[in-house]
Design a protein around this nucleic acid. Structure first.
Length: 288
DNA sequence: GTGTTTGTTATCAA
DNA sequence: CTTGATAACAAACA
């Protein structure tokens, strides 16, 4: 499940690989993946240069040179992967998923972009939830404004902003942190990890948090997101980076996926239950 | 065949 | 208006 740290890892790598590269051809293997009319999609991209690789929450987008400028949005949803293949280096292969990366395009490749010099970018997506969409500047602006709250690591996000966010919400803190319009980028894994780090029970009502708890939660979110980026994200099942490599934060997870394992703080078993419709991991002893 | 996994949106109900 | 529940999308796995 790519969340902010995973998408940011991919963004940074692709920025290094693709900035200034020209798209030579586009192939769509699964038509529903591209949200524009098929004929338009390929022809709009062909011949364009990538001038920026950006991210907002879990949404990745490429800026394509003017005439006028357009943007290619990429949402990985649950199982999307962006794999970059350069004639100059080998991909990691055989990472356990059916259809290894040794041969691309593979069974789950939904789209392929070819750049000059035989460089290729593959969009793989086992479950087909992910999408590609070309938009103009005005539409991009509208999408970002309508669906994305502050970026956790930006100056738009602060203790006082978090306080404002939480004070009127009569929802569970877990549900609030998962809501992309309230705070962009956290998903099920990092919400559970942040709440554990802040020692907050996921079913606490958002408005019930005291100032010290809000400050602690703010610090926890920032610390966890930064660490997860540093370790190139979490691979729980499907995620790999643009070179086909797994994320290294998996080994540092404290609660997610650790049902019945002992809490690192108090040695009580980690609990799992459905909260806000999601599998939720927490320590009932240290999270209050 | 059943339940579970989750990002996001749509829909319905209270 | 807010919140919560549920289905839908789709595929794999136990």
């Amino acid at each position: 499940m790519p969340e902010l740290p995973e998408v940011e890892t991919i963004r940074r790598d692709l920025e290094a690989y693709l900035l200034g590269q020209k798209i030579v051809s586009v192939k769509i293997f699964f038509p529903k993946t591209a949200k524009n009319p098929a004929a338009f999609f390929s022809s709009a991209l062909r011949g364009r240069k990538i001038t920026a690789v950006s991210r907002r929450g879990k949404l990745l987008f490429f800026s394509l040179n003017k005439r006028p400028e357009i943007f290619l949005l990429v949402h990985l949803k649950m199982t999307g992967q962006l794999i970059y293949e350069n004639a100059g280096f080998k991909l990691a292969g055989g990472h356990g998923e059916s259809g290894s990366l040794k041969e691309l395009p593979g069974k789950h490749t939904r789209a392929m972009f070819e750049f000059s010099g035989r460089r290729r970018l593959f969009f793989n997506d086992l479950r087909k939830f992910g999408y590609l969409k070309i938009v103009e500047a005005a539409e991009l602006k509208k999408i970002l404004a309508a669906n994305y709250g502050p970026e956790p690591l930006s100056s738009d996000f602060s203790v006082s902003v978090l306080k404002e966010i939480l004070e009127n919400k009569k929802r569970k803190i877990k549900a609030v942190l998962l809501d992309q319009r309230i705070l962009a980028g956290l998903g099920n894994i990092y919400v559970d990890e942040a709440l554990f780090a802040a020692r907050l029970h996921p079913e606490r009502l958002a408005a019930s948090l005291r100032p010290a708890e809000i400050a602690g939660l703010y610090r926890a979110i920032n610390r966890i997101i930064k660490a997860a980026i540093k370790y190139r994200g979490t691979t729980f099942n499907n995620y790999v980076d643009s070179r086909g490599q797994k994320g290294n934060f998996s080994a540092r997870l404290q609660v997610y996926g650790r049902k019945f394992q002992l809490c690192s703080r108090c040695r009580q078993p980690i609990q799992k239950k459905k909260v806000a419709g999601r599998g939720t991991h927490y320590c009932a002893f240290c999270q209050k």
